[in-house]
C-alpha cells in the first residue's frame, strides 16, 4: 500500500486527536464565524434581540411576582393557626401531645383557661364572676394547604368542644398561589414557543442567504459541526442578549415588588432577584439554541 493510500485511510477512518492549541484555534475560529454571521445579519439582529427581550421581560416579571405571592402566602400561612377549645375537665397537656402526633402539625401551644381569663379581664372590665372560658390550644400547621386536613382530624377528637380558623383566607391564599403558578407555567410555554419560532425563522433566513456558501463548505470537506455550531451559537447569543436587555425593565419590576414587601413588612424571598435573572438567562440561551437547532435540523442538509 502506497504512503498516500495509507494517509487517506488513516485520516478518513477516525478522528485524529489534535493538540490543545489546534483545538483552541478551531474554537476561536468557530466563535469568529459566529460573530461574522451576526454581523452579516445586520439590523435584523436588533429586531430579534428586542423582541426576545420583550418576551423575557414579561416572563421575568411574572416569575418574580410568583416568588412574591409565594412569599406572601408562606408568611400568611405562618400566622394561620387553628384555635381549639376543649371541653371542661379535659387534660390540655395530654390532648396537645396527641395533636402533635397528627401529620402536618408543626406546633401546639396550650393556653390555660386561667391565663385567657386574666388577659380578658385586663383588656375589658368584667364583673367578678366564675371563669367561663375553656382551655385553648393554638395549633400551627406546616403549610396553609394542609390546614383543612388537620382541622378535620382534630374535629374527630371527643375532648374538643369547638374550634376555628381563618378558613376563607387560607383558601384564597392557596387559590391565588395556584393561579400564579399555573400562569407562570403557561407563560414559560408561550415564551418557549415564541422564542423558538423567532430564532427558528431567523436561522432559516441565515441558512437561505448562505445556501451557496454552506454548499461549498460541505463539498470542500468542512466538518458538519464547523458549519452547524456557529448557527447554534448565533441562536444562543440572541437568547443571551435578549435576557441581558430584559434586565433593564426587570430591574424596575424587582424594585417595585421589593417596596411592596417592605410596605407589608414581609421579607423579600432570599435570592429572588438572582433566581429570576439566572432562570431568564438559562431559558433565553436554551430556547435560542433550541430554535436554532430545530432550524438546522429542518433546513440544513449537510
Amino acid at each position: 500500500m502506497s504512503s498516500s493510500k495509507q494517509n487517506i485511510k488513516k485520516k478518513v477512518k477516525k478522528h485524529i486527536p489534535k493538540d490543545w492549541l489546534t483545538e483552541l484555534r478551531i474554537v476561536y475560529r468557530i466563535m469568529m464565524e459566529t460573530f461574522n454571521d451576526i454581523k452579516r445579519t445586520g439590523i435584523v439582529n436588533l429586531v430579534i434581540v428586542t423582541t426576545i427581550a420583550a418576551i423575557l421581560t414579561i416572563f421575568g416579571a411574572l416569575f418574580r411576582t410568583t416568588l412574591s405571592v409565594s412569599a406572601f402566602a408562606h408568611e400568611l400561612g405562618n400566622v394561620l393557626e387553628i384555635s381549639v377549645y376543649l371541653k371542661p375537665n379535659a387534660d390540655a397537656v395530654a390532648v396537645s401531645r396527641r395533636m402533635k402526633k397528627i401529620e402536618h402539625v408543626q406546633k401546639v401551644k396550650v393556653i390555660p383557661r386561667e391565663k385567657s381569663w386574666n388577659e380578658l379581664k385586663r383588656e375589658i372590665d368584667i364583673p367578678d364572676i366564675d371563669n367561663p372560658l375553656p382551655d385553648t390550644l393554638h395549633v400551627k400547621v406546616d403549610k396553609p394547604e394542609n390546614i383543612n386536613y388537620v382541622f378535620g382530624k382534630i374535629k374527630t377528637l371527643s375532648v374538643v368542644s369547638d374550634m376555628s380558623y381563618a378558613q376563607e383566607l387560607a383558601k384564597k391564599i392557596q387559590f391565588l398561589n395556584q393561579i400564579v403558578n399555573t400562569t407562570t407555567i403557561f407563560v414559560v410555554i408561550i415564551v418557549a414557543i415564541l422564542t423558538i419560532t423567532i430564532i427558528n425563522n431567523t436561522i432559516q433566513l441565515v441558512i437561505q442567504s448562505r445556501k451557496d456558501e454552506i454548499e461549498i463548505m460541505r463539498l470542500m470537506g468542512v466538518s458538519n459541526w464547523y458549519i452547524k455550531i456557529p448557527l447554534i451559537m448565533q441562536g444562543a447569543l440572541y437568547g443571551f442578549l435578549g435576557a441581558a436587555f430584559a434586565l433593564i425593565p426587570l430591574n424596575i419590576v424587582q424594585n417595585m415588588l421589593n417596596n411592596v414587601h417592605k410596605f407589608f413588612l414581609i421579607p423579600t424571598p432570599l435570592f429572588a432577584g438572582n433566581i429570576v435573572i439566572i432562570t431568564m438567562f438559562f431559558l433565553g440561551i436554551l430556547f435560542g439554541a433550541g430554535g436554532s437547532f430545530l432550524s438546522i435540523k429542518k433546513h440544513l442538509q449537510v
Binding site: K5, I8, K9, K11, V12, K13, H15, G221, N224
Partner: peptide, 18 residues
C-alpha cells in the same frame, strides 16, 4: 485508499473530502 466509501457514514464524509 483501501476504504469502501460506498459504506462511509455521512459524518465521516468531510474527513474523506479533506
Amino acid at each position: 485508499g483501501g476504504i469502501n466509501i460506498a459504506n462511509l457514514p455521512s459524518h465521516k464524509v468531510p474527513n474523506l473530502r479533506c
